[in-house]
């Protein structure tokens, strides 16, 4: 990691403290946030967009906006990591939609995606230890879901499809899709509850 700031103490600071400093236009705090989450933001955008150049553009936009408008994150509404991921995913999906879903049509089938972005064991050289641990927990939880539930959840989250669009794409009744999403997410929430309560996720 290309760390240019000299004060390594920033690495030890929590997200909320870094954001507090970011409000004061502390460039070191901004660099520390990027070094902590830059790979995660880029990877999330890449997974949705499946285009490295676009993923870089979106990541740049997210971080530059964070620097210029840190007030867009409101701590009382939830954790910084949750917010950052949501903003990234939503912006990437907006990008797909604004391009007339051209990118989405090029999106690989779930089977191809599985080969390309395995949700099971994966080598995570880009992750710090804490995030890597969280990632393992989430992957394990997703892997335990019935494949049809995991498929609709991933099509919604990474594919940016609505329930109706998933129904059309999979040629399954809308009610079936809704039920799969609800059941899958209930199980996921239950599996991740300890992590969420301890605010590790």
């Amino acid at each position: 990691m290309n760390v240019s700031y000299s004060d390594s103490d920033y690495k030890q600071l929590g997200d909320e403290e870094l954001m507090r400093r970011l409000f004061q236009k502390d460039k070191h705090a901004f660099e520390a946030i990027f070094d902590r989450y830059g790979d995660l933001v880029y990877s999330t955008a890449l997974r949705v967009l499946r285009d490295a150049h676009l993923a870089q553009d979106i990541s740049q936009e997210i971080f530059v906006r964070l620097w210029r408008k840190p007030e867009s994150y409101v701590a009382e509404r939830g954790r910084f990591l949750t917010w950052l991921i949501s903003v990234t995913r939503n912006r990437a999906v907006d990008e797909i939609r604004s391009r007339g879903r051209r990118l989405r049509h090029e999106t690989a089938s779930p089977e191809e995606q599985e080969r390309e972005f395995p949700a099971g064991e994966a080598n995570d050289p880009a992750l710090n230890a804490q995030l890597a641990e969280q990632a393992r927990t989430v992957r394990a939880s997703l892997t335990e879901l019935p494949p049809e539930q995991r498929q609709v959840i991933e099509l919604a989250y990474f594919g940016g499809l609505t329930q109706q669009e998933i129904s059309d794409r999979l040629d399954q009744p809308l009610g079936t899709v809704k039920t799969r999403i609800r059941l899958g997410m209930q199980k996921l929430r239950a599996a991740l509850a300890p992590e969420m309560r301890s605010e590790r996720i």
Binding site: L46, G78, L81, P125, V138, I201
Partner: peptide, 19 residues
């Protein structure tokens, strides 16, 4: 809030790439 937290966690399942 809980549901959004769980949804955001899904992003962590992706295979991470170094930016």
């Amino acid at each position: 809030n809980e549901a959004q937290q769980a949804a955001a966690a899904i992003a962590l399942s992706t295979a991470f790439q170094r930016a």
